[in-house]
């Protein structure tokens, strides 16, 4: 178990490092500087600014400085919002993004798994086809199409929910963004869950369980559910990455003051440190999540645990 943890950790560290290297050098390779505004600044002020942000130092020194900071959890100052550090901006958006993201994750897991199980149990019957067609639709319609359609229906036409914005961050504010963010993941999870459930239900050990005369409920809950959930578990990493990526668009569409919105603004404004900060922050989150999921997989599968 400890060996497994060390092994997984050993592959997470180079990923993180690679992420930092890629992000840093990509940013530095950019044509044009962060202070290329409409009116050009006098050279002496520009030099002062560059000095203040250490942009005059050799590249390797800047990189070392950045890595040093990042390891201590300091992502540097923002170029655009000069009164704030990147940390402050991320921390400001984090609670909102976290609420929406976690909400979507939980919703996707429950609805996706439930739909997949229903489809598997009703394999090749009407409810199976219905779930699969819906899932295919969910996979084929991008988030940024679903979101406006949801707004059109629930906010504009029916007037039940706000079209966007973030008043108190309550359920009314969260409902549409969370659903829009969860839908594509629900679709993927339902297909995944259905496939693995069908495979498990066809396995020899389920045949044994049936031959023991166990109640159908026991066969499914005790014998089939856990093995069928394992592939879903290993998809949690990519799912979290998908939700984080999707949140960038969703926050933009619904006008939610989260990290994603800063990210898009920063990307368009060439706010190097902020863009990089968000990439590093979200990247670390995804890598960390993958690591945790791997460990959880080990805990839940007795065969892996034994190794």
């Amino acid at each position: 178990m400890l060996r497994l943890a060390l092994l997984r950790f050993a592959s997470a560290v180079p990923t993180l490092l690679l992420l930092l290297v890629l992000a840093f050098f990509m940013m530095r390779a950019a044509p044009g500087g962060p202070f290329d505004t409409e009116r050009s600044l006098p050279p002496e002020i520009l030099a002062k600014l560059e000095q203040a942000y250490h942009l005059d130092e050799p590249l390797w020194k800047q990189f070392a400085r950045y890595i040093g900071g990042a390891v201590q959890g300091d992502l540097g100052p923002s170029f655009q919002y000069s009164d704030f550090t990147v940390n402050q901006l991320i921390l400001q958006g984090l609670p909102v993004s976290l609420r929406v993201g976690l909400g979507a994750m939980v919703l996707a897991l429950f609805v996706g798994c439930a739909a997949g199980i229903v489809a598997a149990l009703r394999h090749n019957r009407f409810s199976d086809y219905a779930v699969m067609t819906l899932a295919m639709t969910g996979m084929s319609i991008p988030v940024f199409v679903i979101a406006p359609l949801l707004i059109l229906l629930f906010a504009v036409t029916l007037g039940w929910l706000p079209a966007g914005g973030w008043q108190d961050g309550g359920l009314r504010d969260m409902a549409l963004p969370v659903v829009a963010l969860a839908l594509p993941q629900i679709a993927i999870l339902a297909r995944l869950m259905r496939g693995s459930m069908i495979e498990v239900l066809n396995s020899n050990y389920i045949r044994t369980a049936r031959a023991k005369g166990l109640a159908t409920r026991t066969v499914i809950l005790r014998h089939a559910l856990r093995p069928a959930l394992m592939p879903v578990l290993s998809y949690l990493g990519p799912a979290s990455a998908g939700i984080i990526t999707g949140s960038v668009v969703i926050e933009q569409i619904f006008g939610i003051p989260g990290i994603g919105r800063y990210f898009v603004q920063a990307a368009l404004n060439r706010d190097y440190t902020l863009v990089m900060g968000v990439v590093v922050f979200y990247g670390t989150l995804i890598i960390l999540f993958n690591f945790l999921v791997d460990m959880l997989y080990g805990v839940l599968d007795p065969r892996v645990r034994a190794e």
Partner: peptide
């Protein structure tokens, strides 16, 4: 059954 390797539930 025939195959004892796969006839028992590996998770229980």
């Amino acid at each position: 059954f025939q195959d004892p390797m796969t006839s028992l539930n590996p998770y229980l």
